[in-house]
Amino acid sequence: MEKKSMKGYIYLMPALIVILLFTAYPLIRAFLMSFYEDYNMISGEYSRIGLGNYKDLFGDKDFTKALRNTSIYVVFVVPCSIALSLLIAVLLNSNIKCQGLFQTIFFLPYVTSVIAIGLVWSWIFNSNYGLLNIILSWFGIDKVQWLNKPKYALPSLIIFSVWKSMAFDILIFLAGLQTIPKDLYNASRVDSTPRWRVFWKITVPGIAPMISYAFIMGFISAFKVYNEVFSLWGGKAGPANSAITVVYYIYDKFYNSHNYGLASAAAVILFLIILVLTIVQRMMGRKK
């Protein structure tokens, strides 16, 4: 490598300008705005600096509901997706015909637009003509008001999201499984070890890093759920706001109510949640 010179910065300049203007500056601004009370975006004036926005935020029933909903959503979507994906990935990795075809199918949801496929899901969930209720009727189950009743709003959202997030998890697990040496499995076959023991003693430890990675990435992206809600309910947050999420709340407060301070405070809370998760991931990564 040659001696130090400033030339590197010329190459970095384009990226640096974009990052400073559209990442670093807005990050700082979001923190500041979250402390400005009665902030006016046009004039840039505010009445005072304090914790007023945070007080309002945690006093706002919609925000606590958004936090609660998002947490329930995360707790269901991530483990369900990981468990199902693990099953599929293990089966895919065992001597199977048409492995490539299966893999192509299972990864398809990852590349398709959440908005377009969300419209399809809203049609599947349609209580009168939707596919899901048609299938349920074969088993003698009455029509379920999937998208119209508050108590079914989150379950609908969770079903859609599990379908969507499995694609990524299966891919990661399959890649992980392929790094486990075949000799280990062959040895266990000679010893005729039961399948479930092979699974717990060889497979799970072998892909433990991928499982923890899938958990953290799943948590991070699930905390940011928004497009799924928008497309299922055509821009609303479910019946009677029953499926409101943190990002939906941020968007609604700043775009519809023009309450920039409150929206920024909610964004800072989201940032802190994600920061903690990222730190946990880094620490787990280091241990290995």
């Binding site: 190459y11 979001a30 968007y251 929206a263 989201l270």
Partner: peptide
């Protein structure tokens, strides 16, 4: 290339990966 502050700039770049884009849209 070798330039002053390279390691620092690189880690600052990587640190931005932790920021949720949703926070920046406002």
């Amino acid at each position: 290339l070798n330039f002053p502050g390279k390691k620092l700039v690189f880690s600052l770049f990587l640190a931005t990966l932790m920021i949720p884009g949703e926070m920046l849209i406002i």
